[in-house]
């Protein structure tokens, strides 16, 4: 159907519209997924820090360095 890669990229003269659409979708979905991974890591970091702190509070002699 396509006459080489150049023809495919050109999209019959509609390249900016077609690739602008698909590009935005790929970019923003990737960004959303990446932000979510970061948010999840932060949630776990907070819980881990909190757990460490409460251990330290209960056992000041053993938990401080862990």
């Amino acid at each position: 159907m396509w006459d080489g890669i150049g023809d495919f990229v050109a999209m019959g003269g509609h390249a900016p519209y077609v690739w602008g659409s698909y590009g935005a979708v790929v970019l923003l979905l990737g960004l959303e997924a990446a932000l979510l991974v970061r948010r999840r890591q932060r949630a776990w970091t907070r819980l881990a820090r909190q757990a460490r702190r409460s251990t330290t509070a209960r056992h000041p002699s053993t938990g401080s360095e862990s």
Binding site: L36, R40, A43, Q50
Partner: peptide, 26 residues
Amino acid sequence: AYCAAVTLRRAQTELLEREDSTGWTR
């Protein structure tokens, strides 16, 4: 499928954020 995966993950993360370290997350 994308929306399902992302929203379920976000809900999971939201749960983590609402918890403190003494609950089920231990």
